[in-house]
């Protein structure tokens, strides 16, 4: 670290110890997060790991005299783009995850080998390039007026055409997204009356479903209501609970009551707990 350079953002011709320390701490995090993207099953976790990598990269941009890019990285990428990803993830189902069975034969092995080979090649190529001979100029001069001003100067002089074209690209992308996401309605929207008539004409139950049973000792939703003939109503409990097998059985309680009443010499009919709320079912 040379004493001439006071502002770390403007210097960076050489890496300072601080920068080296930061790199060695943050780079493994970025690599691990990226690798994690490969191996976690849930897409949401992948998104979080990607966000981690992106933030690490933003820090690196800042460390490399690119404060504007670093901030944009956080605002646009980690903010907007990742939000978009998460939004779509919510849209298509947050728990959507890959199955572990590879559908393409040999894809996994070939892909891994090829990626590994590619990485070795690129890293090898970098290693062969004699960076030691190259003097790292650093952005001290370029950023003399400030990084944002430097970028702005370039952007509105040399790259102004590309900049304008980019605006067209963005508008096109926005329009394209609208067109793609637009759903054409082919039939007129049904009125409330039509919906109601439809419901009554169908074989489905037209009114509200019966609530679960409310008993002296139990009034949770996992207890089905009893019908006048003593059987339980399937409609009174949520299907989810049925599927999970969490529905409690009313009968044991009834039985114990019955036994008790028999022991007491009473008629079982009298002690049978009727549904507290009247229902046809």
């Amino acid at each position: 670290m040379t004493p001439a350079v006071s502002d770390p953002l403007l210097a960076a011709a050489h890496t300072s110890t601080t920068e080296a320390f930061g790199f060695w701490v943050l780079a493994p995090i970025a690599v691990l997060a990226a690798l994690g993207m490969l191996f976690v099953r849930k897409a949401v976790h992948s998104a979080l790991l990607l966000a981690t990598t992106m933030i690490v990269l933003a820090v690196f941009y800042l460390a490399q005299s690119g404060p504007f890019l670093g901030i944009v990285q956080i605002v646009v990428y980690t903010g907007a783009v990742m939000m978009l990803f998460l939004f779509v993830l919510m849209l298509v189902g947050v728990d959507s995850s890959d199955s572990l069975v590879e559908t393409l034969r040999g894809q996994r092995l070939t892909g891994l080998l090829l990626a590994l080979g590619f990485g070795v090649l690129v890293v090898g190529a970098l290693g062969r390039s004699a960076f030691d001979d190259v003097t790292v100029v650093g952005l001290g001069t370029a950023n003399a007026d400030g990084n944002v001003e430097g970028i702005a100067r370039l952007l509105f002089t040399d790259y102004v055409l590309a900049f304008e074209v980019t605006s067209a690209l963005l508008i096109t992308a926005a329009l394209g997204a609208m067109v793609l996401a637009h759903r054409e309605r082919h039939t007129p929207r049904k009125s409330q009356r039509e919906l109601s008539e439809e419901r009554f004409r169908s074989d489905e139950h037209p009114g509200p479903l019966p609530p679960p049973g409310v008993y002296a000792r139990h009034n949770a939703v996992d207890f089905p209501a009893l019908l006048p003939d003593g059987s339980t109503s399937d409609l009174s409990v949520s299907r989810v609970l049925v599927a999970r097998g969490d529905v409690q059985d009313v009968q044991p309680a009834v039985e114990t009551t019955e036994q008790r009443s028999i022991e007491a010499g009473e008629a079982p009919e009298d002690v049978r707990p009727g549904p507290t709320q009247g229902g046809r079912y």
Partner: peptide, 23 residues
Amino acid sequence: LYLSAILFTIGAAGVLLRRNAIV
């Protein structure tokens, strides 16, 4: 640059291996 290469390779491997379009 090495970090960049490694991250790029991991991204490429991810494209090849993951099946969820969003991932």
